[in-house]
C-alpha cells in the first residue's frame, strides 16, 4: 500500500520534471523559462522527496530528505529571482506575445 503510493508520487514527480524541461526548451525567453524551471522542477522534487520519505529506513532519513527539499526550495526561489534581476539589469527585454 505504502509502496504503491510511493510509486505514484515518484511518477507524478517525474512528470513535472519532464514538464520543466519541455518548458525550458519551448518557452521563448529567460523569464518564461525561469517560470518553468522554478515551479515545475520544485514541485517534481517535492513529490519525489515525498515518495522517497514513505520508503525511508529511519526517522532521521525522513527528516533529512525534508531538509534537503526545503533547502532546494529556498535556493531555487532565490536563484530564479537573482537570474531574473540580472537579465533585467543587463537590458534583456521580456518577450511579449
Amino acid at each position: 500500500m505504502l509502496a504503491s503510493l510511493s510509486v505514484v508520487l515518484l511518477l507524478a514527480g517525474a512528470a513535472f520534471f519532464l514538464g520543466g524541461s519541455v518548458g525550458m526548451l519551448r518557452f521563448p525567453d529567460v523569464y518564461t523559462r525561469l517560470h518553468a524551471l522554478t515551479k515545475a522542477d520544485n514541485l517534481g522534487l517535492g513529490l519525489v522527496v515525498l515518495g522517497l520519505m514513505l520508503q525511508a529506513e529511519s526517522l532521521a532519513a525522513v527528516g533529512k530528505l525534508f531538509v534537503i527539499w526545503l533547502l532546494l526550495l529556498a535556493a531555487s526561489a532565490t536563484a530564479s529571482q537573482l537570474v531574473a534581476s540580472w537579465a533585467q539589469e543587463n537590458g534583456f527585454a521580456p518577450w511579449r506575445g
Binding site: 514538464g19 519541455v22 518548458g23 518557452f27 518553468a36 514541485l43
Partner: peptide
C-alpha cells in the same frame, strides 16, 4: 498554490501554440 503553479506551468509547456501572454 505551488502545487497549482507547477500544474499550470507544466500544462502551458505542453500546449500548442504556447499559451503565454507575459508581462512585467
Amino acid at each position: 498554490h505551488s502545487l497549482r503553479g507547477g500544474f499550470d506551468v507544466t500544462l502551458r509547456a505542453f500546449r500548442r501554440p504556447l499559451p503565454l501572454k507575459p508581462d512585467l
